[in-house]
Simulated scan of single mutants.
Amino acid sequence: MTNMQQGAFEALQSSECDEKCSLVFQLENQWLAGELTLFSGESHASLDQPGRPTRPVLVEPSQLASRSLGSEEGRIGLIHSLAHIEFNAINLALDAICRFSGMPDPYYSDWLEVAREEAEHFLMLREHLRRYGRDYGDLPAHGGLWRMAMDTAHDPMHRMALVPRLMEARGLDVTPGIIKKLTSIGEMELVASLQRILDDEIGHVEVGNRWYGWLCRQRELNPLATFKELLSTCPVSIRGPFNEAARLEAGFTKEEMQLINELDQAMRRPKSA
């Protein structure tokens, strides 16, 4: 490969998990070594389905079984679900590179770094599955993250607002509770992995926040009002409770935290007859 966009597209197309991760690692190494240009002369923005293995089978979220973390099957289900999220996150970061042209060079460097960390997370979780004698693909999963990618494929501002700042930020809210439960049952190796993932994901959400803010400034839009408008048209509702400390560290403002808390409270109010 001679440019980053081409390399990101090749990794995005790859349907084999280990190959996709390897291509991401190779791409970042070459980019950091100064061996690649940023773009080719052709567009790579038309991929509507990323490369993925034939398994897991994708189902609706309501069809996924819910099990207690106190059982081995429950922990396997949790790890598989998290691995699936991380695999999708690799594709989302690569797609952010391929799909949106005209952004500053650091935007592409940022998302390549995110892709590399997501690949590391996926491989780490896959090793936990293998310790249980399972592998990624053994259980069903859902495709909600990629559906949101397609819903925001027309505009990088929408993508930054509704994937890192809405979908991925949810991980900042729920992961501490999962860590607490796993700690109580002595799953300390898995706890260490999830703490590493949480720390990295704060940075990933910050990347989304930073470029969302940049795009709003370029278009002379109010970030808070624009975010509220985008949330009002989004099929996914924002819901709490929120990890306010992690969200503030990831670049959310106090005004945004007030907004999303108000939206969450409004959703929870009983509808009048």
Rank of each mutant, 00 (worst) to 15 (best):
T2A: 08
Q6W: 10
Q6L: 14
A8S: 08
F9Q: 04
F9S: 05
F9I: 00
L12Q: 05
S14A: 15
S15K: 10
K20A: 01
C21E: 07
S22P: 02
S22H: 14
L23E: 05
V24S: 09
Q26L: 09
E28M: 08
N29D: 15
A33C: 09
E42M: 01
H44P: 00
A45H: 14
S46N: 13
L47I: 15
P50T: 07
G51I: 04
R52I: 00
R52T: 03
T54L: 14
R55Y: 11
P56Q: 08
V59T: 02
P61R: 11
S62K: 14
Q63A: 15
Q63K: 12
A65V: 10
S66K: 05
L69M: 10
G70Q: 12
G70K: 07
G70I: 07
E72L: 06
E73K: 13
E73R: 08
R75Y: 11
L78M: 13
L82E: 09
A83L: 13
H84E: 12
A89D: 01
N91W: 05
L92T: 05
A96T: 11
I97T: 01
F100D: 02
D105F: 14
Y108H: 04
E113N: 10
V114Q: 12
E118N: 02
A119T: 02
H121T: 09
H121Y: 09
H121M: 09
M124K: 14
M124D: 13
H128V: 02
L129N: 05
R130V: 09
R131Y: 14
R131P: 11
R131I: 08
Y132V: 06
D135S: 15
D138P: 01
L139R: 13
L139G: 07
H142L: 01
H142I: 04
G143R: 06
G144P: 03
W146K: 00
W146M: 00
D151N: 05
T152F: 02
P156C: 02
M160C: 13
D173H: 01
D173A: 07
T175D: 08
K180F: 09
L182S: 03
S184V: 04
S184N: 15
M188K: 04
E189C: 08
L190G: 06
A192P: 00
L194G: 04
Q195W: 03
Q195L: 09
R196T: 13
I197T: 03
D199F: 09
I202H: 01
E206K: 11
V207Q: 05
N209I: 08
L215F: 06
R217H: 04
E220R: 13
N222Q: 10
F227M: 11
L231R: 14
S232I: 02
T233Q: 12
T233G: 07
V236K: 14
S237G: 00
P241H: 04
N243A: 12
A245E: 10
R247F: 06
R247A: 04
L248Y: 06
G251I: 03
F252R: 02
T253H: 07
K254D: 14
E255D: 14
M257A: 04
Q258W: 01
E262F: 09
L263M: 13
A266N: 05
P270S: 09
K271G: 07
K271T: 13
K271Q: 14
S272Q: 12
A273W: 12
